[in-house]
């Protein structure tokens, strides 16, 4: 069920990994203001860091001349972070979860960001840009109903 957003905040992010610290500070402040406990604030910040790292590295190839946006909205039920980019559409939510036994047996590295995001957030959806949506949107939602 969608309830009207009671609060919104936006941030423009340069496609540079040096922006990640500012991204986390922005997300953490908004998550604290929403009333989440410290451990949940950490999880949300981690998920957004992973999502933005992927956008910066894979979608924009670390081109600091490019920018994308974060939009945080809060309703009675949900705390939502949307990552909006204009690069080629890529739906990370379709990626199957890694087999961690195999991952460790083969000493792989990398490729775990999306898995972390799915583990720590309540809902993760991707909306590719089309006639109705001007930007690709990765939407990360944490439920607010259980916050005391």
């Amino acid at each position: 069920m969608n309830t009207p957003a009671t609060h919104t905040a936006t941030m423009q992010v340069r496609a540079s990994l040096s922006e990640l610290a500012s991204v986390r500070a922005f997300v953490e402040q908004n998550a604290v203001d929403a009333g989440f406990p410290e451990a949940t604030v950490f999880q949300i910040s981690l998920a957004v860091d992973e999502a933005c790292s992927n956008v910066i590295r894979h979608a924009y190839k670390e081109n600091p001349g490019m920018k994308f946006s974060l939009l945080i909205s809060r309703s009675a039920n949900d705390f939502t972070i949307s990552i909006l980019d204009d690069a080629e559409s890529f739906d990370p939510t379709n990626m199957p979860p890694p087999d961690m036994n195999k991952y460790f047996a083969e000493f792989r590295h990398g490729g775990l960001g999306v898995h972390i995001i799915k583990k720590v957030m309540d809902f993760v959806t991707y909306i590719p840009a089309d006639e109705k949506h001007p930007h690709n949107e990765l939407r990360l939602v944490k439920n607010l109903l259980y916050v005391s």
Binding site: R24, F42, L46, D49, E50, S53, F107, R108, H109, G110, L112, G113, I116
Partner: peptide, 15 residues
């Protein structure tokens, strides 16, 4: 703080 990129550093060398 650590993200998956940090975890990856240890995976690179452990084998």
């Amino acid at each position: 703080y650590i993200s998956s990129a940090g975890l990856g550093v240890f995976m690179v060398f452990i084998e």
